[in-house]
């Protein structure tokens, strides 16, 4: 199942947005919560989604976009079904994060911030996952994996296919 949704109808997007706004509230301070919920299905925020959010919250689109692009968990560019985030922080680096990243790149055949041809995986790096005692670590969507070796990282990726 490919979840890239540029073909989704605007109407459906609007309904999703209405629902999220209803759940979180219409105030501007709910913007992050709303964006977070809307990104769950697709792993990214498409233009129509941001337009609908801007409209519902009566905010300029540029402000919504400016806010979305500030936070690294949000993406305004299409991402794969699974976002793989390899931690690059110093503790993970000490534990060999560079080898993990190399193995993941080789396995997926993409560079950082790229998406595999089948739209399954987007590879990103992250500043810290907060599991520093069990590095090196990576996160796939919401799931965190620690104590990685290059082989184990690849094994885990394979389990997502």
């Amino acid at each position: 199942m490919i979840m890239l949704c540029s073909c989704r109808e605007v109407k459906i997007v609007r309904e999703d947005v209405k629902e999220a706004v209803q759940r979180c509230g219409r105030e501007k301070h709910q913007l992050l919560e709303i964006l977070g919920q809307l990104q769950k299905g697709t792993n990214f925020l498409e233009r129509d989604t941001l337009v609908a959010v801007a409209e519902e919250l009566d905010l300029p689109l540029a402000e919504v976009y400016g806010t979305a692009t500030f936070y690294s968990l949000y993406s305004t560019k299409p991402r794969g079904r699974y976002v793989v985030r390899v931690c690059e922080s110093a503790p993970c680096h000490i534990d060999g994060a560079a080898d993990i990243l190399a193995a993941v790149k080789a396995h997926l055949g993409v560079a950082v911030d790229e998406t595999t041809d089948n739209s399954q995986f987007t590879l990103e790096t992250t500043s810290c996952l907060g599991v520093c005692s069990v590095g090196p670590a990576m996160m796939i969507n919401d799931e965190v994996y620690g104590n990685l070796t290059p082989d184990r990282a690849v094994e885990i990726l394979q389990s997502y296919n």
Partner: peptide, 9 residues
């Protein structure tokens, strides 16, 4: 109007 905003980080 707000068509300009600070974007990215």
């Amino acid at each position: 109007v707000g068509v300009l905003s600070t974007v990215n980080r």
